[in-house]
């Protein structure tokens, strides 16, 4: 099996995540789809790391995880706050910037 298959799998998962971001309206699911995309990237990094025999891919994947964790914390807090004030977790309702 060609190790490029991992990359192809990463591409597929990434696209699915992107479609989820675009199609779903529930902010929490959208967030999960973002995580899906990040994970797909991580898979690609890890596969590349193995293909090239360097550890950098894993290091970067590690950093991606850390940043994703931070992002989740803040993002979910924002979702909570919006839900509290607007009684809705739909991202279509968060349109205060539209006139």
């Amino acid at each position: 099996m060609d190790p490029m298959n991992y990359i192809v799998l990463a591409a597929i998962v990434f696209t699915i995540g992107a479609v989820g971001v675009l199609v779903r309206r529930n902010a929490i699911i959208v967030f999960m789809c973002v995580e899906l995309m990040l994970n797909a990237c991580n898979l690609a990094f890890v596969a590349f790391s193995r293909m090239h025999g360097g550890i950098e891919g894993q290091v970067i994947a590690f950093f991606v995880m850390v940043v994703a964790a931070a992002e989740v914390v803040v993002g979910l807090a924002i979702i909570m706050q919006i839900f509290r004030t607007r009684r809705s977790a739909s991202i279509d309702d968060a349109n205060l910037l539209k006139n």
Binding site: A18, V21, R25, I91, A94, K98
Partner: peptide, 14 residues
């Protein structure tokens, strides 16, 4: 094009 829907904008990004 300015629908006010973040998803539309994200679609543009994709």
């Amino acid at each position: 094009m300015q629908t006010g829907f973040a998803r539309s904008y994200a679609l543009t990004m994709l």
